[in-house]
């Protein structure tokens, strides 16, 4: 019994991905047994997003050789940047077993606030700060209600969705504000080589989130509060504070995404942006983050966002009607959720 347990547990330590439990050279005999790993469906759940991305890229490239042209890659990365930022924030709320259904509306509200500040003649730098702070405050409010009001995440954020969308309409009077600024134009069009500035922003956010999740006490407490609220409380971790913090984080990311959105469309519009909500949650699920909480990583949702963007882009290139795209995205997400059943 003892030896059997030992070997499976060691496999477990090796198999586990870039999150908490990871490889330890000293304690585990190295060299993963690939055959064994590939036989485990859990591996596939964790690798769903990168593997799916590669499959899609190969498929689309075979069907349409213009798919992997520099221009199209640039366009895809730029389109994915906003989604990556939203999905990164969302990862933290899902890691605590919650979900932020208000991300897209928060982003819209933040973008509108950007427009309001811009319309009032504020310098662009101030507008950026206004947008990010709006997201932060909205997330903080949601987090406080969830953490201290002890109301289910789902209910609070679905209310938040409605409130933020409504506020966006109220504040803007339902009218878009066009943003004419060389800074914002450069933000959306400029970059380093193929990598546009929005993509750089997304990568910096993802890298910072990775450090936060795996290399700070806060990150460990997020995973603990999501994995076992009882254990977290018993060891003195305040799950209320963790909840408040993750929604604040998600709101801040939404505020930043609002800036990227304004740069992308050149205007602050009170539009609904529902597809961003669906895709942000979908990226997180595709990334192998457990919806029950306690297990998360940042690279997965990043690849999830790229996959979803490549999917819509490829379908458009192939001339598939836009109406089929939500069907395709939905199917992929359900498939990913199906794989994640085997994650344990």
């Amino acid at each position: 019994m003892v030896s059997a347990t030992t070997s499976t547990s060691r496999d477990g330590a090796r198999r586990s991905g870039p999150d908490g439990a990871d490889r330890d050279g000293a304690a585990t005999p190295a060299r993963p047994r690939w055959r064994e790993r590939l036989a485990d469906p859990g591996t596939w759940a964790e690798l769903a997003a990168p593997v799916g991305l590669v499959v899609l890229v190969v498929l689309f490239q075979v069907l349409d050789p213009t798919f992997l042209t520099l221009g199209n890659i640039e366009a895809m990365l730029a389109a994915a940047a906003i989604l990556v930022v939203l999905a990164t924030g969302q990862t933290f709320t899902v890691a605590t077993g919650g979900i932020d259904l208000a991300v897209a509306s928060t982003m819209t509200f933040s973008a509108v606030m950007f427009g309001v500040a811009f319309g009032a003649g504020a310098p662009v730098g101030v507008c950026v700060v206004v947008s990010v702070v709006t997201g932060l405050l909205f997330g903080l409010a949601q987090g406080l209600v969830i953490g201290y009001g002890r109301i289910t995440d789902f209910i609070v954020t679905i209310g938040g969705l409605s409130i933020a969308s409504g506020l966006a309409l109220v504040v803007s009077g339902g009218q878009p504000q066009s943003i004419i600024s060389t800074f914002m134009l450069r933000l959306s069009t400029g970059g380093v080589g193929v990598v546009g500035y929005p993509v750089l922003v997304a990568l910096v956010v993802a890298a910072a989130a990775h450090v936060l999740l795996f290399h700070t006490r806060f990150g460990t407490h997020v995973l603990a509060a999501g994995g076992s609220p009882e254990a977290a409380t018993a060891t003195g971790i305040s799950t209320r504070r963790v909840k408040t913090a993750v929604y604040t984080l998600s709101g801040t990311c939404a505020g930043l995404a609002g800036v990227l959105l304004v740069a992308r469309i050149g205007a602050a519009e009170p539009a609904a942006n529902t597809q961003f909500l669906l895709n942000a949650v979908a990226s997180v699920v595709l990334g192998g983050v457990a919806l029950m909480g306690g297990r998360a990583n940042i690279a997965g949702p990043l690849f999830g966002a790229l996959l979803l963007t490549a999917l819509t882009n490829g379908l458009t290139l192939l001339g598939v009607s836009q109406f089929y795209q939500p069907v395709a995205v939905g199917s992929v997400v359900v498939l990913a959720a199906f794989l994640s059943r085997y994650q344990r």
Binding site: A13, S16, G20, A21, D22, R217, T220, H221, L223, A224, G227, S228, E230, A231, A232, A234, T235, G236, I237, A290, G294, R295
Partner: peptide, 17 residues
């Protein structure tokens, strides 16, 4: 209930908080 977090490693549980 032991107050362990199942998805964290042994060392993370030993040092929790």
């Amino acid at each position: 209930s032991l107050a362990l977090v199942e998805d964290l490693a042994v060392w993370q549980n030993l040092y929790l908080n």
